[in-house]
Design a protein around this nucleic acid. Structure first.
Length: 419
RNA sequence: GUGGAUGUAGCUCAGUUGGUUAGAGCACCAGGUUGUGGCCCUGGGGGUCGGGGGUUCAAGUCCCCUCAUUCACCCCA
């Protein structure tokens, strides 16, 4: 092993080809679908002033214990973004997007940072794709972002994602429920697991997704009985709209989420290949978040999706988009000619390689065999006669092609290979 | 933050009860006659056996510490 000082930092990694290209393909799939749904791409900084994230997650582990927070040389208190929603909310306010034609649809993709113990599907730096829709309190907006997320997962090749959804109520009904929950668990405090004892203090709603105290939580008051009328009809319409699009969606009364800016709708999608407890994407409604950022209080709903997780959950590796390559090999003393021909082919839109380490023809062909589909051999008598040899590496057949017909010939070959 | 497992060439791994210059397969490079790949043959390069300390005449093999990786919990994408 090399010197430890020169290894990637814990929880981070290099992504080499072909995975790097698969990743790029996945980003493109996500962004293409987002655009088709009418979402504009927004790029926010990798780091923000710490309050941007602190404001929205006072009781969440993500911002409390897992953020990369630092002071720069000038003394500014900064944080590497742990998630996308807060930064987008900040941008919405900062750029007066409340004045733009509503609703405002935004999507983003990029790295997020959380200082957790790494494990399967969990990195300290991971990529997230996300989308947010501002300015609509309609259930159709909730459904729309879910449909987009499901569509991306499906387009990547993962069939039949199952959406789980719940409503954690609004400012009116949630406090009542929260109190009922505290009362219930308080009386059973002694039999709760240690984690749940702290949850009771910090974030009682999270008691619901404990995996240990299953029996106790089964008897807990049901949020459903506390929803106000608006919350009740809202969640029903969300479910209807998603189902109407032919997507499978289930109500899960124990689903709550870690970020504490959510209101009403929360949803999550896992996948068997990742294990039950790992989410592929998750999100919800966060009306009023922009208000807490000092701007007009707008209704909004969105999701975040883990790209590494999605990629690793795919049953088939994603097409990495590698084009058919052409290797321009040369006979002795025709090195420059080959080099120039390769450049000409590239200008014609073809993917072409030429030897740059002085290999013998034999070695060039061997090299071509692992990186290209066709070899063009230049030099010798053929070149003097205005022709080159073109060899199909898959079939082994080779023929003489006139130099001025070469681009067309290769174009036809590529076309044929595609069919 | 808690608990378990693992660390030998680029990759996947052997390495016998501690015993001479640490191995294999794959990958890589070069040859197998002058201008042709995939198969085969020959040769070659590449390892401070994660790091440090200890026990021993002798440690990749035993002990301790440390670092890293990995899995689970917590939490989350």
């Amino acid at each position: 092993m090399a010197n430890e000082d020169y290894q990637t930092a814990r929880g981070t990694r290099d992504v080499l080809a072909p995975e790097s290209w698969q990743f790029e393909a996945l980003r493109r799939i996500a962004l293409d679908w987002a655009r088709r749904f009418g979402y504009d791409l927004i790029e926010t900084p990798i780091f923000e002033k710490s309050p941007v994230f602190l404001k929205v997650g006072e009781s969440t582990d993500i911002v409390q214990h897992e953020s990369y927070r630092f002071r720069d040389a000038g003394g500014d208190d900064l944080t590497l973004r742990p998630e996308g929603t807060a930064a987008v909310a900040r941008a919405y306010v900062q750029h007066g997007l409340a004045q733009a034609p509503q609703p405002v649809r935004l999507c983003y993709v990029g790295p997020m940072f959380r200082r957790e113990r790494p494990q399967a599907g969990r990195y300290r730096q991971h990529s997230q794709f996300g989308a947010e829709i501002y300015g609509s309190d309609s259930p159709l907006a909730d459904a729309e972002v879910m449909l987009l997320a499901v569509q991306v997962v499906d387009a990547a090749g993962l069939r039949h994602p199952v959406v789980r959804v719940n409503s954690i109520g609004c400012d009116i009904c949630r406090p009542r429920y929260r109190q009922a929950l505290i009362d219930y668990f308080e009386s059973r405090r002694g039999s709760l697991c240690r984690d749940c004892q702290t949850r009771l203090e910090q974030n009682p709603l999270r008691l619901l997704d404990c995996k240990i105290d299953v029996d106790i939580k089964a008897g807990a008051p049901d949020l459903k009985d506390f929803w106000c009328e608006d919350c009740q009809t809202h969640i029903e319409h969300v479910v209807d709209a998603v189902q109407a699009a032919g997507i499978e969606i289930h109500r899960d009364r124990h689903l709550v989420r870690g970020l504490d800016y959510y209101t009403r709708t929360v949803f999550e999608v896992g996948h068997p290949s990742l294990g039950d407890q790992v989410a592929l994407f998750g999100g919800g409604r966060y009306d009023g978040l922009s208000g807490r950022m000092g701007g007009p209080s707008a209704p909004a709903v969105g999701f975040g999706m883990g790209l590494e997780r999605l990629l690793s959950a795919l049953p088939e590796p994603l097409d990495d988009g590698e084009p058919r390559r052409i290797y321009v090999a040369h006979l002795p003393s025709f090195e420059d000619t080959a080099y120039e021909l390769a450049m000409t082919l590239r200008r014609q839109g073809l993917a072409a390689d030429a030897d740059v380490i002085g290999r013998s023809l034999k070695a060039q062909l061997k090299d071509a065999n692992r990186r290209a589909s066709w070899v063009v051999i230049v030099g010798g008598q053929e070149w003097e006669n205005g022709t080159v040899s073109v060899r199909n590496l898959a079939t082994g057949s080779q023929e003489l092609v006139s130099r001025d017909q070469l681009v067309r010939y290769l174009g036809d070959q590529l076309q044929e290979a595609k069919e």
